[in-house]
């Protein structure tokens, strides 16, 4: 069976192709969070693509909805989407829009406007708490997203209600659309902030699959604190000429660049 590292490389190649074919932006945002997405879908999330509404499933919310291609690649691999559906990404009439639609199976929340995923994740986790269910809820945010006040409202809510089955990631790639996320607003010290807000906080290398896996192993309804994983990442990770270059927040790769990227990723 394919391991999560191979899977992440395959997903990366796929999203580069998708960005080129559909002419859509936010490629570097998809690449930075890809290891987290790959580990979660490969080794963590309990899901049943034949029964997408299974009540005991783990929930995953891509709160940074602009990285939709990362989610679509994972949903297709897992079997929630067909290869034909994945091919339709960005085409007129397709349900695979540039931000995840609530009409798609496997999508737990409509995201794209930042700051919505964590409050919604709190509600899902709270429902599990009320009904004494064992599922876990995972939310993946961007660092720029932490500009939104609703993230901090939700952080206080999750701690107050001891949502131990809730786990959030910050894909801390140090960039937002137009600048360094540490400079646009005073984001640092991000780890201390979430710790002060009452979360169990792990600070990890967001490209190290073992660290990603370890950071979520204790997430459980029996815990008294929600878990925040501040994952240090590189925007555009995996394609040397995109890494840490914020032009790739919006740039679309040419056919030649797609081939170069795939060669680097070892996916041909």
């Amino acid at each position: 069976m394919i391991n999560s590292t191979q899977l992440a490389a395959r997903f990366r190649a796929r999203v580069v192709e998708m960005s080129h074919a559909a002419g859509t932006a936010h490629l570097a945002s998809s690449l930075s969070c890809m290891d987290i997405v790959a580990v979660l879908y490969h080794s963590v999330l309990r899901l049943d693509p034949l029964n997408p509404g299974w009540k005991d499933r783990d929930r995953f919310i891509l709160s940074k909805g602009h990285a939709a291609t990362a989610l679509y690649a994972a949903l297709a691999w897992k079997g929630f989407l067909t290869e034909e559906q994945l091919e339709s990404y960005g085409r007129a009439g397709s349900l695979l829009e540039e931000h995840p639609s609530p009409k798609l199976e496997g999508v737990e929340a409509a995201t794209g406007s930042l700051g919505h995923g964590l409050p919604c994740g709190c509600g899902i986790a709270l429902a599990g708490h009320i009904k004494k269910e064992q599922y876990r809820t995972f939310v993946l945010m961007s660092d720029g997203e932490c500009n939104e006040g609703s993230v901090w409202e939700a952080s206080m809510f999750a701690a107050a209600n001891r949502l131990g089955a809730l786990c959030a990631f910050v894909d801390f790639n140090k960039w937002q659309a137009t600048g360094r996320s540490r400079e646009v607003l005073a984001l640092d010290p991000l780890v201390d902030k979430f710790r002060a807000f009452g979360w169990e906080v792990h600070e990890i290398d967001g490209h190290d699959h073992q660290q990603i896996l370890q950071s979520v192993q204790d997430v459980s309804p029996s815990r008294q604190k929600p878990t925040m994983v501040v994952a240090h990442t590189v925007k555009g990770k995996g394609v040397s000429f995109m890494e840490d270059d914020n032009n790739w927040h919006y740039r679309i790769p040419t056919a030649e660049e797609v081939q170069l990227a795939k060669a680097e990723l070892g996916v041909l």
Binding site: C120, C122, G123, I124, S150
Partner: peptide, 16 residues
């Protein structure tokens, strides 16, 4: 914190 309250409501509703 009404923004969060509304988001929490959506998560609850999505979970039955």
């Amino acid at each position: 914190a009404e923004a969060n309250m509304t988001g929490v409501a959506s998560g609850l509703a999505a979970s039955g």
